[in-house]
Amino acid sequence: MREQSPDMATEISGLNKWYGSFHVLKDIDLTVAAGSRIVICGPSGSGKSTLIRCINGLETYQGGSIALGGVKLGDNAKETTLARRDTGMVFQSFNLFPHLTVLSNCTLALRRVLKMSRRQAEDIALHYLEKVRIPEQAKKYPAQLSGGQQQRVAIARALCLSPRLMLFDEPTSALDPEMIKEVLDVMVSLASEGMTMLCVTHEMGFAREVADQVIFMDQGRIVEQARPDIFFGAPSHARAQQFLEKILH
């Protein structure tokens, strides 16, 4: 619903973050070009989730910079808010608002942040609920849906704001095995439409099929960054090899 500017890239340079004395992100440099689809994997505690949470301001950081479409986060509160509005976030635990219907979950920000009329907001929400193949559930409450359906609603809620970068934080990790596919299918179709995606996931099938870059993180560093065929075929770092051996059984 908003024009896509081709130069909307995310640039992270020299990013450092500490939790107290624990150095959780170490000198992260990463460019996410518009239209690219990057999968981040790595052992737990390696900083993957923290990294994408930094990108839309859910975490603060102590060193380095993050720029969304040329706007450096933190320089100017107003511009930061506007830039952050260009990113959509999907959480591991869905985080739908339990007291609102599926439709209201999607329309709340449109109405309160973008000041749209109810009619306009509902049209947009229904459009995206259709896109995630769930329009018939619009009047239900989140608790009445399955986990897979809830996560698809969460994706629709993020899409309503026409983000130019979608961040996924282990979107299928909290799901029963049979519901993983319905969520991945939605993500695959998003990717095929050219959405820029940064996705923390251990779904290696998804990474193979969709990603144009796979990033492997360990102990707060980006250890390896490669095309999926190279990453899965012959990872160059021992730590990445061990990781792949463990999860690709």
């Binding site: 839309n56 301001g57 859910l58 808010t81 952050r84 509005r85 959509g88 976030m89 959480f91 635990s93 985080n95 739908l96 608002f97 709340l108 920000a109 309160r112 942040v113 809620r157 993020a158 704001l161």
Partner: peptide, 23 residues
């Protein structure tokens, strides 16, 4: 209230006041 609720609210861009009132 789980912490994820206010995080989700911030992630969709709601202001602090709106987060208190609506979430």
């Amino acid at each position: 209230i789980p912490k994820g609720q206010s995080e989700a609210s911030r992630a969709v861009g709601l202001s602090r006041i709106d987060t208190i009132i609506f979430i």
